[in-house]
């Protein structure tokens, strides 16, 4: 196995080469396009779900446990409900909670991370102790226990996971802020006599954003996975509701006899998480292009 020399001296030649590579990568790949398409479906289903499949929750015992057919694409469950239609309904909890968590953690992370990184001092110290503590904790475990004790429910789970996600954003934003604040362009802004908030939000924030935004996509994927895991354990969405995690949990009893009950929701979750990560990578590539960098 030979070892490729991949970097080395930063000659202008190399820089041009890299820049061109980055430009080329900006064209979305098939995977990215598929991800966008799938996520668009989730958004539409999440927002308009009940309008698209108005009869999803109608029970009909005569139709129970049917196989795949043109009428029921993924068959029906033991109560005779169309599984595909219930998967469509499940997009709602897969969309709203993770979106809220990603946004919340992003905002908290940017504000606290910039503060801890740029201002530091006592507020920075407090923020970082909090982050360190949260980092050392096994997050999912805390979520399980907290939700179990607080008495469950989807929105409780959303709140708990948001609090558990924010430290990751905070730590990232702080690290980038500290790395950027020693750069001459920030010092030059200080030397000009600009106010602290202007330096933070006009100069630092735009340079921190690419990483923070890609972290938000990561948060979304992890929130999606953790929320459905909690529902799967019976600690998130109420049993019986059309949530992908809950549907999977309820399919367990007769899994080997009726695998159709599980396949739809399982693939829906996996593809959603994968799509979000693929899109996150792509967005990061786009945001950190040559125009935004100094090299």
């Amino acid at each position: 196995m030979s070892i490729e020399t991949t970097a080395g001296a930063e000659t202008p030649a190399l820089r041009t080469f890299r820049a061109a590579r980055r430009r080329r990568r900006r064209l979305p790949s098939v995977a990215v396009l598929l991800s966008i398409a799938y996520l668009a479906c989730i958004v539409v289903a999440g927002v308009f779900g009940p309008l698209l499949v108005p009869h999803a929750n109608v029970q009909s015992l005569t139709d129970s446990l049917q196989g795949m057919s043109s009428q029921h694409w993924l068959g029906t469950d033991d109560l005779g409900r169309d599984i595909f239609e219930r998967v469509v309904l499940g997009a709602r909890t897969a969309l709203y909670g993770p979106l809220l968590i990603a946004l919340g953690a992003f905002v908290i992370g940017c504000v606290l991370g910039l503060t801890a990184g740029y201002i530091g001092g006592i507020p920075g110290g407090i923020i970082m102790r909090w982050v360190d503590l949260m980092y050392a904790l096994p997050g999912v475990l805390v979520a399980i226990v907290a939700i179990g004790v607080l008495g469950g429910g989807y929105w409780v789970a959303v709140a708990v996971i948001m609090i558990l996600s924010a430290p990751y954003d905070t730590r990232l934003v702080r690290a980038v802020t500290i790395e950027q604040k020693g750069r001459p362009y920030v010092e030059a802004a200080r030397t000009l006599g600009l106010s602290r908030s202007r330096v933070m939000f006009r100069h630092l924030l735009p340079n921190v954003l690419p990483l923070a935004v890609s972290q938000a996509f990561l948060s979304f994927a992890f929130a999606l996975i953790n929320l459905s895991a909690l529902s799967f354990l019976g600690l998130g969405s109420t049993p019986g509701s059309p949530d992908w995690g809950t549907m999977l949990a309820e399919s367990q009893a007769s899994l080997l006899d009726n695998p159709l009950l599980a396949i739809g929701p399982a693939l829906a979750i996996i593809f959603a998480a994968v799509s979000v990560n693929i899109l996150g990578d792509y967005v990061f590539d786009r945001l950190s292009t040559k125009e935004g960098r100094n090299d």
Binding site: R183, Y185, H203, P206, N207, N294
Partner: peptide, 13 residues
């Protein structure tokens, strides 16, 4: 003040 490294002394954004 004028800094040494011209490549990072201007805000890239």
């Amino acid at each position: 003040y004028v800094f040494q490294d011209p490549y990072s002394s201007l805000n890239p954004r």
